[in-house]
């Protein structure tokens, strides 16, 4: 044993600041997951399109966001976008943009597989019922792929919640950011980061346990 003696007193004194940061993290996650769950579907429709004008650029987009670190994406949007596009938005907004695009790319891959799992006969039936392609996508395909892809979507969303900690680097005052401050101020980084980790775990773990239940529910409905 290292002989380190834990002392949580100062850290727990600053616990309200961690909670403030947590609220920012949750806001960020909620916005990004809310948008990314739908935009991922739209992107999946585009990447599976027969039109090359649609499928090639959108697939390129997906690969760029899948094959670069989320940290770089956040930093790039925070430092490079203002210079290139002359826009100056608050760090929170930049974080939302970067993470939304990231989650959209990952979710679109989950949706793409789910779309392929829908029997082609349903497309025929939709045409026979005179549904437009838009109505078909929204009322027939989306509700089903949302269920089929939900295990992956939930785990993508949990990952997103973890990755939201990266926005601390561009000074969004989230849980990680407040944790870093507290660690420096209390000289108790081990205690602080342990608690921060426990908060991330405590929120993520129950949700990850939902995945199994969702799978069983869907198996019954879509049988």
């Amino acid at each position: 044993m290292s002989g380190y003696s834990f002392d949580f007193f100062y850290v727990l004194n600053g616990f309200s600041r961690l909670l403030q940061g947590l609220i920012v993290s949750l806001e960020l996650t909620a916005i990004v997951v809310g948008i990314g769950t739908f935009s991922g579907f739209v992107l999946a429709l585009a990447t599976s399109s027969r039109s090359l004008f649609l499928s090639v650029p959108t697939r390129l987009f997906v690969e760029i966001f899948r094959c670069t670190p989320a940290l770089i994406q956040i930093v790039w949007f925070f430092y490079c976008l203002p210079v290139l596009a002359d826009v100056f938005w608050p760090p929170f907004t930049m974080g939302v943009i970067a993470l939304t695009l990231n989650l959209t790319a990952f979710n679109s891959e989950a949706y793409r597989a789910a779309i392929q799992a829908i029997p082609a006969a349903q497309r025929d039936a939709s045409i026979a019922l005179g549904l437009s392609r838009w109505h078909q996508a929204i009322h027939v395909v989306f509700p089903q792929v949302l269920r089929i892809a939900s295990p992956v979507l939930v785990s993508n969303s949990i990952s997103l919640f973890q990755q939201s900690s990266l926005v601390a680097i561009v000074s969004v005052e989230d849980l990680m950011y407040q944790g870093k401050l507290l660690a420096v101020q209390t000289y108790r980084p081990i205690e602080t980061f342990t608690i921060v980790a426990l908060i991330y775990f405590g929120l993520s773990f129950p949700i990850s346990q939902l995945v199994g239940r969702i799978e069983r529910y869907n198996a019954r409905l879509l049988a």
Partner: peptide
């Protein structure tokens, strides 16, 4: 024109 198919084409989520 209406059509019914060999394989069930009811929308399972509805």
């Amino acid at each position: 024109v209406g059509m019914v198919f060999q394989h069930y084409t009811l929308f399972p989520h509805l």
